[in-house]
Each structure stands twice: as structure tokens, then as C-alpha cells.
């Protein structure tokens, strides 16, 4: 039972972590190399890793998607540690529209223009902060979605993830609030009802005992009297 409970809890925690890791914005320090547009087939399960920019796109089997090719500074530990090495990273650039995740991004064409404007060479690099969500997976061709790009002076800029800070503060407050609500509900609504049910059960039990007593005495009256 304990194993089952902890397995369940661990599963919920892992799913929550993955969901937040996919959905929350992350920042990369990048140098734009090129942008391109490519027809994508969307009719298998990896469809979940592409956006639904508008209603007609929900039924399309394939469509053009814009991409931004960059070289980024390698980072680890959720982006908190930035290394001195570089690695290629390709972002897709799609509207999220009104659907999930709730970025309300409609400015794909503008973002593509900004990215094109920031294109640079290794000899004369122009660094920028790319805000994005999602994962990169080479095996199943999954790309993170670029949300915003902002030029910075050099590759050593420090980005403070304000949105995520506010989000987690809000999340903790919300969890504590829901817990307080649940406790109040249990104390004021569930426990009194259970007590009442318990008392009712006790009354039934007592009456049963009494009835059994009477029945038992009647049975006893048929037994032979103890011999003297």
C-alpha cells in the first residue's frame, strides 16, 4: 500500500514537472545563423509537438512551418548554468493563437523578420536572448517554439526569469489556498456529517444490542434450567 501510494505520488510529480518544463518559457543566449521554411507532415502522433495556429490547421495533414537556425551557448540545470561551449539549436516559429499553451502568440511573421535582421557570422557575432518553450528531439523531429527574440550586447548576459518566478510564487500561494479551503470544508462540512452518521449508527447498534438481549433471553427461556 505504501509502495502504491509513493509510486502514484512520484508519477504525478514527474508528469507535473514534464508539463511545466515543456510549457514554461525558457531563455537561450543565441546567435541567429539562418531562417528557413519547410513543409511538415503532421499526420502522426508527433502532431502534439506542433502548434495549432488557427482552426483550419487542426485538420491539415501538412503545412509550411517557419524555422530559425541558431547557435546557442550550452547550458545545464534548467538553464541556470551557462557554459562556454556552443551547440546548434533550431527553433520552430509558429503562432499558438488562442490554444494551448496560452502564449497568445500571433506575431510569427514579425518574429521571423526580427530573427532575419539579427543574422550574423561567427566572425562578427550578434548575440540575442531567445525566449521559447518546448523541447528539441532529433529522433522524432521535435522543435521548441520561439516566442520572442531580443538583441543583447554580449554572450555573457544574465537573464532573470521573472515570469517563472511569479508563476511559482503564485503556484505555491494557490496550493496553500486550496489546502486551506479543503481543511475548512472537511472541518465544517464533512466531519459534522460523519459524526452525525456515526451517532446514528451507534443508536442503531444500541437498539440491535437491546433487541438481541430480549431475543437472547427468550431463547434462554427454552433452555433447560441448570440442574441443582
Amino acid at each position: 500500500m505504501t509502495y502504491l501510494k509513493w509510486t502514484l505520488r512520484a508519477t504525478v510529480a514527474i508528469v507535473m514537472f514534464l508539463l511545466l518544463h515543456y510549457t514554461l518559457p525558457q531563455h537561450d543566449i543565441v546567435r541567429v545563423v539562418n531562417t528557413y521554411q519547410e513543409r511538415q507532415d503532421l499526420n502522426d502522433w508527433t502532431r502534439v509537438f506542433w502548434a495549432k495556429p488557427d482552426d483550419q490547421s487542426a485538420e491539415l495533414v501538412n503545412r509550411d512551418v517557419q524555422f530559425i537556425q541558431t547557435v546557442r551557448r550550452k547550458s545545464s540545470l534548467l538553464g541556470f548554468v551557462v557554459h562556454n561551449r556552443e551547440e546548434p539549436m533550431v527553433f520552430r516559429n509558429e503562432d499558438t493563437g488562442w490554444s494551448w499553451p496560452p502564449y497568445f502568440k500571433f506575431d510569427t511573421a514579425n518574429l521571423q523578420t526580427q530573427a532575419d535582421d539579427l543574422r550574423s557570422t561567427p566572425e562578427e557575432p550578434k548575440w540575442a536572448v531567445m525566449t521559447h518553450y518546448g523541447w528539441r528531439n532529433e529522433l522524432i523531429s521535435v522543435f521548441p517554439n520561439a516566442v520572442a527574440i531580443k538583441p543583447i550586447d554580449g554572450p555573457d548576459a544574465r537573464v532573470i526569469p521573472w515570469f517563472n518566478i511569479f508563476f511559482f510564487v503564485f503556484l505555491v500561494i494557490a496550493v496553500l489556498f486550496v489546502r486551506a479551503m479543503w481543511r475548512q470544508f472537511r472541518e465544517r462540512s464533512i466531519d459534522p456529517a460523519l459524526n452525525e452518521a456515526g451517532e446514528a449508527w451507534d443508536r442503531v447498534d444500541a437498539r440491535a444490542d437491546e433487541a438481541k438481549g430480549r431475543f437472547g433471553r427468550w431463547i434462554d427461556s427454552w433452555r433447560s434450567k441448570p440442574k441443582r
Partner: peptide
């Protein structure tokens, strides 16, 4: 259509929160 879906489900979700918080606030009072 996407906007309508967002509005409808958003309204439903927030209504659940509204009812729960109202109940809680009355209970505290």
C-alpha cells in the same frame, strides 16, 4: 472558434473557482 473555446472553458473553470471561494469565504465568516 479558438477564442470562443477559450472563453467558454475559461468561464467554466473560473466559475468553479468562484463558487469554491464563495463557499469558503461564507464558511470562514
Amino acid at each position: 472558434m479558438g477564442l470562443i473555446r477559450l472563453l467558454v472553458f475559461g468561464f467554466l473553470g473560473l466559475s468553479i473557482a468562484y463558487l469554491a471561494i464563495s463557499f469558503y469565504s461564507r464558511s470562514i465568516r
